[in-house]
């Protein structure tokens, strides 16, 4: 089981305390009524799915309950860093 560092609790905790929240930094559309079908497709369905560095959201559901962002290598599953929601992309 992997250990994940929660940037709010400032502790390494086992994966079962966390819920994966999908790709990070996907901005909600500011003006949905003006979006084209292609833009909706990109927002709703298209994902980076990289082999390597992946920016993703996690939630410390059985801890502080807060969402944060992480950078993880999808080949080794090693976490490079975790940072608080709202901080710029690392």
């Amino acid at each position: 089981m992997i250990l994940i560092h929660c940037p709010y609790c400032d502790e390494d905790r086992p994966e079962i305390e966390f819920a994966y929240g999908g790709e990070a930094h996907i901005a909600r559309p500011l003006d949905p009524s003006t979006m084209s079908d292609a833009e909706w497709e990109r927002y709703l369905f298209i994902r980076n799915n990289p082999r390597g560095r992946h920016h993703e959201r996690w939630r410390h559901s059985h801890g502080c309950g807060r969402f944060f962002n992480a950078v993880r290598d999808t080949v080794t599953d090693k976490f490079e860093t975790t940072y608080k929601a709202g901080e710029p992309r690392k």
């Binding site: 089981m1 992997i2 994966e15 079962i16 819920a19 994966y20 790709e23 799915n49 082999r51 992946h54 993703e56 993880r72 999808t74 080949v75 080794t76 599953d77």
Partner: peptide
């Protein structure tokens, strides 16, 4: 498993 990965392995839980 819950997260995106190419590792061809998963967690014991």
């Amino acid at each position: 498993d819950q997260y995106v990965s190419y590792s061809q392995r998963g967690a014991l839980h």
